[in-house]
Design a protein around this nucleic acid. Structure first.
Lengths: 196, 196, 196, 196
DNA sequence: CATGAATGAGATTTCATTCAT
DNA sequence: TATGAATGAAATCTCATTCAT
């Protein structure tokens, strides 16, 4: 298993990065949150950037794993897509910090952001491959699966993000209770026409 | 009309903020890009934050106006929604800088980000009101119009953002040519089931 | 003329660098000695290294100028060499700080040290050219003028350095009074055999 | 005999200190070069400074011994001085690392540097005593043997140092081949007038 | 004896902001 | 109005030293 201190630092770093964003996050704050000395972080990570990238990779990895597991149980592409949306939203609901980081830090021209987008690109490819299979098997019909993947990713992500922040402003914390509502909405968007 | 220098500063600031994000953007850089002295910015704006907020407000204002104009021409809610998506995507395609800022800086706990989200909230209300009207007039059918508004906003925004960055990485600049593809995809997502 | 603050910073920097060496010299200390804020140094110099290199270049320039002026008045190579030694030692006596920096920081593999040695190399070439002329005009006789230049440079420099530090340890400050002694010694070394 | 690990650490430390200077030398680097853990160095040496001082003392000791052995074989002061120069230069040629440390770290106000200079002072006394004997026995003639000792020391040391670095820049490694040239030059400087 | 993870004091550098001109 | 030199608070990162194992 990973070194104990590294784990603690990771935990703290997610919190702080998610709360403040990369630039506003202070290594001091992360150290304090982790209950270690600042130097300890630098003993285990070469730089703030490396710590961040490690975090991101792990986060995207977990999201991917989680979604893949959800998909694996299903046969047909439409069931798989349904499971994908379900898993994606639930994951973000349970890992709100990562959701925040995702939209806060995924776009931009810095190296760390490019690395991040590479991981997102991989995740989008996963979505796209489900769509593609649906098309091939005659279940789905669409002209641009790549764009559709982005759109679905955006819908499912922003729905959760927006909910997180609006609940935060009302100081309400019961986001998990709203998960079904969000899942239902995105699934309707994808599977049923809005128009009667 | 607005003071000439203010206009120049605004122009430069959008560029720089979009390219670097709020924190990494340097007042020096903005001043240089605007061709004025750093002091001049502070003569017209109280702080970096105020400059940013001014920018955001103006940007969201423009987006709102643009979308409202698109809607105004249409009668039925479904036509209005179609026009809204069309206008939204086209606006982001033509104002990529704002699109970048939107997702880069909209989420977070800093005061400027909260102000930003207030504007986004207003824009989401606009979308929601179209959905609501559709429901009332029996055109649309959905359980959670608020969540649906977020989802649609996310889909339309992320589709453009993802395209912008993927084209940038290929050093291709013809994003305008891809607008129809993106519009078509999001409109299908909203109006037609993916499933045959 | 050079900017006033730049001059002040230069002055202070020579003191501090000479006293502590490059690594032990603190920018804080230089700022305090100069009576400016630390940021001011960085407004005028990109880095500690750049400040140091600026200093070195100026110092070696002055030494070169001083020696060249001494030489210019003389006709024969032997008179020129005599004047060179005289000027060199007197310069180091009057600019002890530079003398310290010279031997403290001229050797090493860091970039700043390489730059420094380039300047020293130029200065050694000056000495060598006097020796060379002396050989060509039949005044001097030696097999290896390049090595001889180094040796003469070392003799004249170390004599002063050693004196500076030995006086410092006795807390005596009258180094100027000892200049003739040193000049005489080195000139004897160069022009007269030790052996009767 | 000295503890095995201590020997290894000493070896590594000379390398690293010579390459980087005292301040830039990292204990980590020394430990790695020695193939021991960092803690091990601290088991054998109280501090970085103590390690350095130990090194210096040993180095100057060796130089002294070497030169003394050279002198011991000769009778007359002039032959002794000749042997001294020969031994000094050869020692620096074979122990370039020490030569580098000598000029890099001998001057300065830090405690370790003062200790270092004490050793150098002793060595200068050795040179001076040869000169003094020469004067007393009527072989030499000079007004200031102390200054002359410094000058000779400087000449012999800088000649080698300058050669070391100039060969390094040309990535040539055959310094040993140039030893006779250097010895000849310094001996001419000391024993024969440059002037015909 | 030996280790290497952990520490924390302290250094360099950045940059929003101010203010005298 | 406009300027840009000056500021200083604050952030990242380094590394000698310690100490539990």
């Amino acid at each position: 298993m990973r070194h104990e201190k590294v784990e603690v630092i990771f935990q703290a770093a997610v919190e702080v990065f998610a709360e403040s964003g990369f630039d506003q996050a202070k290594m001091d704050e992360i150290a304090q949150a982790a209950g270690v000395a600042k130097g300890t972080i630098y003993y285990h990570f070469k730089s703030k950037e490396e710590l961040f990238v490690g975090l991101m990779n792990e986060g995207m990895e977990k999201l991917s794993d989680c979604v893949r597991r959800g998909i694996a149980l299903k046969k047909s592409p439409s069931e798989q897509l349904e499971a994908l949306l379900h898993a994606h939203i639930l994951f973000f609901v349970k890992n709100g910090k990562l959701a925040k980081l995702l939209l806060n830090e995924a776009f931009g021209t810095k190296e760390r952001q490019r690395q991040f987008r590479t991981k997102i690109r991989e995740y989008l490819n996963l979505i796209e491959s489900v769509l593609q299979q649906g098309i091939e098997q005659g279940e789905f019909q669409m002209a641009h699966p790549r764009e559709m993947a982005s759109a679905i990713f955006g819908a499912a992500s922003v729905v959760v993000l927006q909910k997180i922040y609006s609940l935060e402003e009302n100081q309400s914390e019961e986001i998990e209770a709203t998960a079904p509502t969000m899942i239902e909405s995105v699934q309707q968007l994808v599977f049923h026409p809005l128009i009667k």
